[in-house]
Computed example of a mutant assay.
Amino acid sequence: MIIQSPDPLLTGTYSVFLAGSIEMGSAVHWQQQICNAFRDDENIILYNPRRDDWDSSWKQEITNPAFNEQVTWELNALDAADLIVMYLAPGTQSPITLLELGLHAHSKKLIVCCPEGFWRKGNVDIVCERFGIPQVTTIEGIISVITAKYYEHTQSHLPGKI
């Protein structure tokens, strides 16, 4: 199930926030690849911040209702998610994703994919090493981790499991 901003968040199942490069025109539409992989899976909720009606002319100010709604939705979805997958696309800068990496480095629910060519790969690698954040090298690796983490989650919630 895919929930896009600004749609209401759902609870009660396994949820994954798709954090990462969105820079319009610079980043591949990687979120779509992940959404396609789980499109028919009603047990996994994907929180996708890529908004179909995004308007780049919105003033990025707290007093702008549309911008405030977007940022608030993202913060709420990040907090609600069981897993945060992060893709930092080569050729992008992704400052908000870097901010989110810092905000959630201690959360134990991050998986990062930062291929060669991302402008601050060294910084990302050091933060991941310091905080024990697992890294994968491809979008396919992200899809595999989502599947594995969902399986772990369901196994840990079986009757008789602690």
Rank of each mutant, 00 (worst) to 15 (best):
F118E: 03
V85I: 14
T63S: 10
K108P: 01
S107M: 08
Y47I: 08
A77Q: 05
E100F: 03
F38D: 08
F67G: 06
D53F: 03
A66P: 01
W119G: 03
Q135L: 14
A37Y: 11
Y150P: 02
Q93E: 14
G91A: 05
G122H: 05
Q33H: 06
Y47T: 03
Q32K: 14
Q93K: 15
L46I: 05
L75I: 12
Q155I: 09
I142F: 01
E116M: 10
I34D: 06
Q70P: 00
C128I: 01
Y151I: 12
E100N: 15
N76I: 04
N123H: 08
W58V: 07
R120V: 09
A89G: 06
K59F: 02
T138S: 10
Q60V: 06
V127K: 00
V85Y: 01
A37K: 12
Q32M: 05
N48L: 15
E140L: 13
I133M: 04
A80F: 03
I146G: 04
Q155F: 03
P65W: 06
P90Y: 01
N76R: 14
Y151W: 09
R51V: 02
V16E: 02
A77N: 06
L18F: 11
E23I: 05
N68Y: 11
I126L: 07
E74P: 00
A148L: 12
C113V: 00
K109Y: 05
Q155Y: 01
S144I: 05
G117M: 02
A105L: 09
S94R: 02
S56L: 14
A27P: 00
Q70I: 00
L83P: 02
L110E: 06
G25Y: 05
Q70N: 13
I133T: 02
H104M: 13
P90K: 08
L78P: 00
H29M: 10
I111F: 04
P115H: 04
W58Y: 07
L103M: 14
R120M: 14
S94F: 02
E140K: 13
H157N: 14
